[in-house]
């Protein structure tokens, strides 16, 4: 695919736009940030509704717990920062004051994953999905592109309960022109195949689509699923993919431990065991570099996905 032909879009920008829209419709919405509002784009809400925007400074623990207090008092709260700070500095606060009492706070992180780029490993959060999906009562959403980020923001506003959403810093291509409408807990089948299913989340859904095209030239027919909710997982879709294709590859911009891959493996093992190959970062930290370079270096590319898919199809055949 020629990069020049693809229109790149910002997930952060669409998050900010959705917040402003929601703010005009619902006076009960408040937004919090921890001194990164220009980067997370909550600054847009702050400009539109300054009285309902609270920049808490560099104090994530206080921010997330203040968000809990606002929600307990009846507000619909969105709290944002970078994924590494928003989940890593506040795990106990989220556990104690949001997940346990089922507080209606939407924790929305930007700058997740390797594609943060030059800031390096300290800022490249690859363990957040694991931290959040391990919490009882927590919903975890990873939208694939700008359009889905916009839709997911609206969906979270209508959903009552704790939720975590993460997306990256880098602009990403749209996964399709039309696409299906986002719903919490519902995966979407983007392409139907017979030999293997590529289940991706976040911006790597695009890489799954590219890998499927490549596999086609090799005579392998691949399904592609956008698993934009990691928890609750769409078990029905996983089951269907296991039965219909008998081989699965999971793809995520996250550690292979505790992320989408592990969620899918648990579902597959329990309901319809088939070979699964997990693609993600291999239990390692990242490093500085440009987003595209890093994704390629750490094996999060269409080429690597296609190779893993071919291997997984071979495994399936050997098992028969």
């Amino acid at each position: 695919m020629s990069p020049a032909a693809v229109k790149m879009e910002s997930q952060r920008k669409e998050y900010g736009r959705a917040l402003v829209e929601l703010g005009s419709k619902n006076r009960n919405i408040v937004v919090l940030d921890a001194d990164l509002s220009v980067s997370t784009r909550t600054v847009e809400f702050g400009k539109a509704y300054p009285e309902r925007f609270f920049n808490c400074g560099v104090s994530e623990a206080n921010m997330i717990t203040t968000a809990a207090g606002l929600a307990m008092a009846g507000k619909l709260v969105f709290a944002s920062s970078f994924a590494v700070f928003l989940t890593g500095l506040t795990y106990n606060q989220i556990r104690q004051s949001i997940a346990y009492p089922k507080t209606n706070v939407k924790i929305v992180a930007s700058h997740a994953g390797l594609s943060v780029g030059p800031d390096g490993a300290t800022h490249q959060m690859l363990e957040d999905v694991g931290l959040m999906r391990g919490l009882p009562n927590m919903t975890v959403v990873v939208p694939a592109d700008a359009r889905e980020t916009y839709q997911a923001t609206h969906a979270l506003a209508s959903f009552n309960g704790p939720a975590y959403m993460r997306f990256g810093r880098a602009d990403v291509p749209p996964i399709s022109d039309e696409g299906s409408d986002f719903a919490i807990g519902r995966a979407s089948m983007l392409r139907e195949g017979a030999d293997v299913t590529l289940i991706g989340c976040g911006q790597l859904v695009q890489a799954c689509l590219a890998a499927a095209k490549q596999l086609e030239t090799e005579g392998i027919s691949a399904s592609v699923v956008n698993m934009s909710t990691i928890k609750p997982l769409d078990n029905g879709m996983v089951d269907r993919c296991a039965r219909d294709t008998g081989a699965i590859v999971t793809v995520e911009e996250h550690n292979i431990i505790n992320g989408l891959g592990d969620a899918v493996c648990s579902a597959v093992a329990a309901h319809y065991p088939v070979p699964v190959t997990k693609i993600g970062t291999m239990d390692t930290f990242g490093e500085s570099g440009e987003a595209g370079e890093l994704l390629a270096k750490y094996g999060l590319s269409a080429e690597k996905i296609a190779m893993a898919a071919a291997r997984t199809v071979d495994t399936k055949k050997r098992m028969r």
């Binding site: 408040v30 809990a68 207090g69 606002l70």
Partner: peptide, 15 residues
């Protein structure tokens, strides 16, 4: 878990 009560109070107070 100690240290969180005052932040909760802040949330109620703002609201």
């Amino acid at each position: 878990s100690l240290g969180q009560g005052l932040s909760i109070a802040n949330g109620f107070a703002l609201s």
